[in-house]
Design a protein around this nucleic acid. Structure first.
Lengths: 367, 367
DNA sequence: CAGGGCGTCTAATACGTTTTAGTAGAATCG
DNA sequence: CGATTCTACTAAAACGTATTAGACGCCCTG
């Protein structure tokens, strides 16, 4: 038997060869192909390809005729066929390794993603998202995506100390940008924030107010940016001689609250507490209020992250603020560059977060 | 000239034919193909395909040998080639039409997405996300994605009154689930929440406390769920005779605040205010505090959405709570069913949000 | 022992596009 | 006016996989 031929323009004896056994919603609209467009425009498929890809070598009249037919029928090149020939997929991937439930808690991710996407959308590029349990699966996904040729680029987030991913992704040959790392060696282009300066900014503010005994409710120490903050704190401690105690947490409100309790029960009491994120800061504020310790009179509170939470708290919280959306667009811009030009890896500095002084910080009470 | 042949297993004189002219990071690892696996396993490409797709027709020994080789080399079928043969892409799409900057404000979206993804990830399905400006572009994207065969399924969010998208998507033949609509006719399977019952639940609570004059700061009236809430309010008004006034907003804290101001300056004053989302509720709480109107003594406050915002506010806010993450997983489950079986459209009811009574509601003050 | 049936495997083809090599005709040039 | 270059287009060969039709043994059965 000859290979099954699709019903072409000729005699169409098979009006609907569709499945007679499948009752509901079983119509298949018989996908258009470039041959159809070519036939209707009276040209070859090669001409169709040239026209839709805007390449030179066609008269304006012919080009227009082809495009008119294509638009009329709302035909686009089949993505898979195009990708098979080595074209871009117009997809960038993000794989996140976090407990899925925690994603919605922080506004950071959603805002970053929005910024990223709003920049990529202009180029018709979509973002492909996968949430996995652990870093191992994450690595497996990178491998799989590379093998499958699924994405044109990657964004790496939440870099851990000694994270193996940048090296792996670079070796896999996928264009990528990492957010937050600018270590050496640097296998990938990175967008980084000066956590050191930001941390110093907070501490300078508190020291200037007169605080000499400061608590720090830190995030997960496995992350690189946490380490950078801790190092900055050490530097300030060494240079100014003030006392700073860090307590590590998992960023949750629960651990933020219990860390706060420990700091406020200490004797002598810490006169200021710095929190690595907004959720913990607000939770800590609640704890202080519960314990009858007025903020900012008896204890000042500062958050590393700014959000609707910190502005709406009472008292509103002094916080480091940054444009997370813009961070996303910056990352996207760099990724587009990497995808297009494959330049040598380089660090790109994002604006350093600014300190917004609100109602939660003041000079420590006299003793 | 004969067609370019890739260097095969034979004499390997070309250790690294990589580009000598492009200096940085220009290695291309020469993608593996099924032929390579076949050669190394000593079988045909057909056997490789059968093995990796787990289809019957191969002895266990051969099957294992093939899979071993494939895993060893970390080879996977090229996605595009596979998709070209009509296989699934393992991608579902979500197109959101909102100002990009607003996405991070509400936790709803991030949580929903997490739930969706955590369910889809089990099947190795990724989510493709696109944020666009308006509904027109959204429709164009659906058309393009359909024509390109980019996604296996769609999730439709933020349904407007008379939204044309369900009909369009159904006509395009893309499996899809809509969140929130259960109208007639229903071209697509929908996951819906009983907004009517939820709204009634809030009002019953306030009426039971003794409130007879209630303000409602509503969201954008173009959305279907806003309409359902408004209708529910009307029903309660009609059946109980209490007074309820709605003010439409765009969900922003700014408009929430100004609406609150209007309600609290009214004479006689409204003794309770219901907000369509948590951001506005917290903003309204701030306004009341500023105006020297104690909550809940002089005015009760209820939020339609629950989040870290409502729990951390002082006083903490009475709110409707629902498991947005679970809503995501439910939607994913339904979408998977639709993609697999193409059943007739049907409504799937998600659990009705429950009222969590916190500190912001109380009986109205005596007059 | 012929013949059917089954288990295992392969050759060849199709999927829908892009790209390369090439052709026919018109224009240009010495 | 023949040779060259250009313009506008086409035929055919990829891209890497899934699938279909069959081939080849082998076991069973009558």
């Amino acid at each position: 038997m000859p290979p099954r031929k699709r019903a072409s323009s000729g005699a169409g004896a098979d009006a609907d060869p569709g499945s007679p056994g499948r009752p509901p919603a079983g119509e298949l609209p018989a996908r258009l192909r470039s041959t159809d467009i070519a036939r209707l425009a009276g040209v070859s498929v090669a001409a169709v390809s040239i026209a839709v890809n805007g390449r030179p070598g066609l008269s304006d009249a012919t080009r227009k005729r082809i495009l008119d037919v294509a638009n009329e029928l709302n035909w686009r090149p089949h993505l898979a066929a195009r990708a098979l020939k080595g074209a871009a997929n117009d997809v960038v991937g993000i794989v996140i390794a976090r407990p899925a439930r925690t994603l919605g808690v922080e506004p950071f991710f959603a805002q970053f993603l929005s910024g990223l996407q709003s920049c990529l959308s202009n180029r018709g590029i979509a973002t492909q998202l996968l949430i996995v349990e652990d870093t191992e699966t994450q690595v497996a996904v990178y491998r799989r995506w590379a093998a499958e040729n699924r994405v044109d680029g990657l964004v790496l987030l939440d870099l851990a100390v000694d994270d193996a991913r940048p090296r792996l992704v670079a070796d896999l040959g996928i264009p990528a940008v990492v957010l937050g790392s600018h270590g050496n060696p640097m296998p990938l282009t990175s967008v980084w924030v000066d956590d050191h300066a930001a941390t110093a900014r907070i501490l300078r503010h508190l020291v200037a107010l007169g605080h000499r005994r400061i608590g720090h409710v830190s995030g997960t120490v496995a992350y690189q940016h946490t380490q950078r903050r801790l190092r900055a704190i050490e530097d300030v401690r060494d240079s100014t001689g003030i006392e700073v105690t860090s307590i590590a947490t998992d960023y949750s409100d629960a651990q933020g609250a219990s860390a706060t309790r420990r700091l406020l029960e200490a004797n002598p009491r810490y006169t200021a507490v710095v929190y690595d994120n907004d959720v913990m800061a607000v939770a800590g504020l609640g704890v202080a209020t519960e314990m009858g310790i007025p903020v900012p009179r008896d204890v000042s509170v500062v958050s590393f992250d700014d959000s609707v939470l910190t502005t709406m708290a009472h008292p509103s919280l002094t916080a480091l603020t940054r444009d997370t959306f813009a961070l996303g667009t910056l990352t996207a811009t760099e990724l587009l560059r990497v995808m297009a030009e494959r330049p040598a890896p380089r660090p790109v500095q994002a604006p350093t977060p600014q300190l917004v002084i609100r109602q939660s910080t003041a000079a420590p009470a006299e003793r």
